[in-house]
Write a protein that binds this DNA or RNA. Structure first.
Lengths: 143, 143
DNA sequence: TTGAATCCGGTACCCAGGTACGGGGTTACC
DNA sequence: GGTAACCCCGTACCTGGGTACCGGATTCAA
């Protein structure tokens, strides 16, 4: 057995800088279960394995795709144990969420367009004819 | 002069119920400047003019259209003094915001579609060929 | 060895838009 | 005039994703 090169462990400042993340965020992610508790130096300083930076990149990508930190934690966790179709299912669910959000934004956009087109000049006492503001009030069912 | 019918003043519970809002929310809106300080009963209970319910409906409509409470307060305030084109300008700005948001959601949606289509099975160690997850990580510029 | 740089844990704070709680005063109705 | 229902104010708490501050300990390089 070669003396297994354990050199490249990183301290938290290095991980934070390379991943473009605050150090506090690393501890926060650790509390949230996104990062495993790293090994420690004799004095208690964290020593991260080098893959941590890549993992943080993945986390940021997943966040960008609309997953909450809890969801990311769960995905990392199940993916660590065994590859499952969970990720695909969750991604499809996110797509549906996004479609709903886009649909909602689109109707809001239409209402705003009507407000602009009608020339509304006041929220409370609009003087424009056929003011669409009351109608905008009716569409209060969120997705 | 007729003895001016000041009857229909509402107490906070009535306003809250008719507007579908929590009583605490009324006091919160008062603090935030969305509702003027109402007159009080001899014992200190709030007595709201009947138009308050309609105003709350307007506030909820504006919120639904994407305006923050601060923006709504400002719109109510300027609209109270004199009709201005502010509302139209703000509405147009909101439309632009919404367009940006929709565009962003659309690119995220595309990334998710690729993840599903490629059959990704793990965030950390995906075994699918040409895994799009690293690419999804690159698109990290928010709107 | 000493000084600067880094890191530790714990706690508090930030954003927005509210909601909940507790102890006490008021109002309304029979 | 009792008593139930209502309302007062101040303050703390909630969600989500972090960030900031603190006093003290550790690590690293000269």
């Amino acid at each position: 057995m070669s003396p297994e090169p354990e050199e490249p462990y990183l301290r938290s400042g290095q991980v934070a800088e390379q991943a473009g993340v605050n150090i506090q965020t690393l501890r926060y992610y650790e509390r949230r279960g996104l990062l495993a508790e790293p090994r420690r130096s004799p004095g208690g300083h964290r020593a991260y394995p080098p893959g941590t930076v890549a993992l943080l990149t993945v986390i940021k990508a997943a966040q960008r795709l609309g997953f909450t930190l809890d969801e990311v934690a769960a995905l990392i966790d199940t993916g660590r144990r065994h590859p499952t179709p969970d990720l695909r299912a969750q991604a499809q669910a996110k797509i549906d969420e996004i479609d709903a959000k886009i649909a909602d934004l689109t109707t809001v956009r239409e209402s705003l367009t009507q407000v602009v087109a009608a020339g509304c000049d006041s929220l409370t006492g609009c003087t424009c004819p056929d003011c669409p503001l009351p109608a905008a009030a009716l569409a209060d069912t969120m997705y």
